[in-house]
Design a protein around this nucleic acid. Structure first.
Lengths: 137, 137
DNA sequence: AAAAGTAATGCAATGGAAGTGCATTGTTAC
DNA sequence: GTAACAATGCACTTCCATTGCATTACTTTT
């Protein structure tokens, strides 16, 4: 029943203690996290390790990058069925201006965006900002 | 016929030589520019001045910031009728992965984005990436 | 027109995040 | 067990954004 270990193994990367911990951290957090977030959660470890771990996760389609406009890159777990390598997953992200958290709204697919003649659309980044459900209560 | 001077005057900021030059630079460029772009165009001037000038322009709704995901903030002129102060202008931005330029597609208004119950949408950032008309020829 | 007040500019410095080179440690395969 | 390779940790660099402070330029008041 060691699901995290099993899961990482299916991704063809070496299963190390650090990677399992970071993966678990991402599962527990319900929101997108920055490198600094991970860094403060694992003070024992070096930031380079965390950096490279998250980059590995990204390559293997375990997490995806989010640019929510705060100026700091955030990362969140991919969906099971997302095929990052092939087609960028086009769900939208919501950034709360109150609690400063960013969440994936995976159920909300991005509508087809029309671009002018001659332009070729390959990828879309859509971030909605406002107040999240917890802060608007 | 000193339109730039007149224009800046209507914005209630002091009209200085530097500000006129920077404004003209932005008009001439058809794409969004970074601070470094401006910096290299005006080597005589200090980066801080350019930085603060662009910040002033931003406050006065002369330019708007664009985060196109390249990691560097870009700026582009606002439309005449855009009321940044009141409602954020919701046109979309297109970033060309080939020439690395970003343009405002002001004619393309962003569709209404639905968010889940409890979430309040205040602002939307939409960047489409791909190949621009000039590079796709 | 001079003085006083205010805004703009320039210089120096800081801080944060991203990224890289290299040595060391750990893991895997033979 | 040893060789090969991948992961980790440390030190360092680069780039961009931002701020404090002194100086200069412009405006307003008298």
């Amino acid at each position: 029943m060691n699901t995290i270990e099993d899961f990482l193994a299916t991704k063809n990367i070496r299963v190390t203690a650090m990677r399992m911990l970071i993966y678990k951290f991402l599962v527990d957090k319900q929101t997108a996290v920055t490198l600094s977030d991970i860094e403060s959660a694992f003070e024992k470890s070096d930031r380079t390790t965390l950096y490279r771990t998250i980059k590995t996760f990204e390559e293997k389609c375990i997490v995806h990058q989010i640019d929510d406009g705060t100026g700091v890159t955030k990362y969140a777990l991919c969906e099971n069925n997302c095929n990052c390598e092939i087609n960028n997953d086009l769900h939208l992200h919501f950034h709360c201006n109150t609690c400063n958290k960013t969440v994936c709204l995976t159920d909300h697919k991005i509508p087809q965006i029309k671009v002018p003649k001659g332009f070729v659309s390959e990828n879309v980044n859509l971030v909605v900002k406002g107040v999240c459900d917890k802060c608007s209560e």
